[in-house]
């Protein structure tokens, strides 16, 4: 069972298993690929994983029903997931937003600012040290999901 950083703590994820892209039917407790998720009749309590290039807009009508959205970073330099997260949160998604894949601890701060609240690092031995990176900066210039007011609105 994978370990996650959630709420600045390390937790075991007992609820969700990684997607099985080749499975014809999705078992209970397995995260769907976008295609599998689109085929679900009942999306209540569902979990879906976005890959770079997936159309995030197809999730928007169902944001209230989804329990978990995972965003995969197959390579840490592909920054599309940062925009997916912000768009999902801007459109009112309240459920868990989890970063998975090859992202690195030095990105945790940015990831949390665009709306991720769970982090599944590939290298679990890094989790403890990585928590510190969430707090790399205590002040920010621009508006973000974690701090909606930009500095210029707090200064003036």
């Amino acid at each position: 069972m994978p370990k996650l950083i959630k709420g600045a703590e390390i937790v075991n994820d007992e609820r969700w298993k990684a997607p099985q892209p080749d499975a014809e039917t999705v078992s209970e407790g397995v995260i769907c690929t976008l295609a599998q998720w689109q085929a679900l009749d009942d999306k209540a309590g569902s979990a879906v994983q976005l890959e770079p290039g997936d159309d995030v807009h197809s999730l928007l009508p169902h944001l209230q029903e989804i329990e978990l959205i995972a965003v995969n970073f197959p390579v840490f330099t592909d920054g599309r997931g940062f925009s997916y997260a912000r768009e999902l949160r801007e459109n009112g998604y309240q459920g868990e937003l989890r970063a998975v894949g090859a992202f690195i601890r030095d990105q945790l701060h940015y990831l949390s600012r665009v709306g991720f609240d769970a982090f599944q690092l590939e290298d679990e031995s890094q989790l403890e040290a990585a928590i510190k990176s969430l707090e790399d900066f205590s002040v920010h210039y621009q508006a973000s999901i974690s701090h909606p007011l930009p500095l210029f609105r707090r200064r003036s």
Binding site: G79, F82, Y110, V114, Y141, Q142, S144, P150, F152
Partner: peptide, 16 residues
């Protein structure tokens, strides 16, 4: 200067 501040550590656009 407004653009400098906005673009400094913009979390969404650091891996373009």
């Amino acid at each position: 200067e407004i653009i400098r501040q906005w673009s400094t550590f913009h979390p969404e656009f650091a891996f373009l």
